[in-house]
Amino acid sequence: MTMKRGWIAAAVAAAGLSGIGTSAIAESETLKTVQERGTLLCSGHNGSYFGFVEVNDKNEWKGLDIDLCRALTVAILGDPDKNQIVPLSWAQRFPALQSGDVDVVIKATGWTMGRDTELGLQFSIPYFFGGAQLMVRKELGITSASELGGGTVCVAAGTTIERIVADHLKAENVEHTMVSFEKTAEVIGAYKAGRCDAYAAWGPSIAVLLANQFEDADAHVILSDKLSAEPIAAAMRQGDEDWVDIVNWMLAALIKAEELGVTSANVEEMTANPPNPTVARLLGVDAGMGERLGLRDTWAREMIAEMGNFAEIYDRNLGEGSPYKLARGLNNLWSNGGVLYTPILD
């Protein structure tokens, strides 16, 4: 344990033993369970979902969603390594959450009405936006989803993509056969083997896939049809509002830090000399950031020091610092042409 993590651990212990935030801790059963266990249980993937939840050549988890889990771990436990990533298929993630096998699902998960009202889930503020799209081989000469008549579409089971694509093709009166697979790798393998005419997936993931998994990337084309505009959010069990608050403000703090220019490189300087009251509140210089959540006031500062702000996390996993070079587009700040914004930090 480094010296920095040593004093963070001491602060975590002190917050748990003091009267600060006592009512919030008592009311959030999930937070209490995580603190007593000493480990945060996050959703992983049964394989790699490149750029978001993947395993590197050292058998280590990485990706945007993994880093968000690590950020939440710092916020709660003061150490990004005090988490366990539980490998789950798309279909397994919600039963695992409902049964308590994971504390939170941060895994490219779309916020839908059915999941919100029928599965007993609650969602965080969105942290990513993307829509369902289709990829085909250029040699087929297909330029639109409406031209897929009689074709076969491969898709991952248990995802919103399955329903969205089926609904769109039905509305277009396109006869097709949908073939679903449990693992993302199986979907990709089936498409590469020519078992299907189209590969249906989330647009950003298709772009990442082409950049990483296809030696003949130029032989394929992503159709311009955007079948949905899907908000991606963390999923939690209903009934623990204080836990939802913690996850929401973890995400908000990362985005707010980017907006305010607070980075892993300058966070200590910003703490010593806050340029404005909002930065002072965010970094725990002024009290209140932690007490209202049942955490220590310095949790956001520690999280940014360890993980960076949202831009830093995006860049190393999906952007210019990654193999994928995926432009942020909609996933930029509202002030930079995107749609990401946060609640007011008062």
Rank of each mutant, 00 (worst) to 15 (best):
W249D: 13
W249T: 03
M250N: 05
M250I: 10
L254N: 11
A257T: 01
A257N: 03
A257H: 04
E259M: 01
L260H: 04
V262F: 04
V262Q: 02
V262P: 02
T263D: 04
A265Y: 03
N266P: 05
M270E: 12
N273D: 15
P275L: 05
P275W: 01
L282A: 09
G284L: 09
D286C: 04
G288V: 01
G288K: 00
M289N: 11
M289D: 02
G290F: 02
R292N: 00
R292Q: 12
R292A: 09
L293T: 10
L293M: 07
L295K: 12
W299S: 02
A300W: 07
R301L: 12
R301P: 00
E302C: 06
E302L: 12
M303H: 07
M303Y: 06
I304W: 10
I304T: 02
I304V: 15
E306S: 12
E306R: 00
N309I: 06
N309G: 11
N309Q: 11
F310W: 14
F310Q: 05
Y314M: 11
Y314D: 06
D315S: 09
D315Q: 04
R316D: 10
N317G: 05
E320V: 15
E320T: 15
G321S: 14
S322V: 06
K325V: 11
A327G: 14
A327M: 14
L330A: 11
L330T: 01
N332P: 06
L333G: 07
W334C: 01
S335H: 00
G337K: 03
G338Y: 03
G338D: 08
L340E: 12
Y341G: 14
T342K: 00
I344T: 14
I344A: 12
L345M: 07
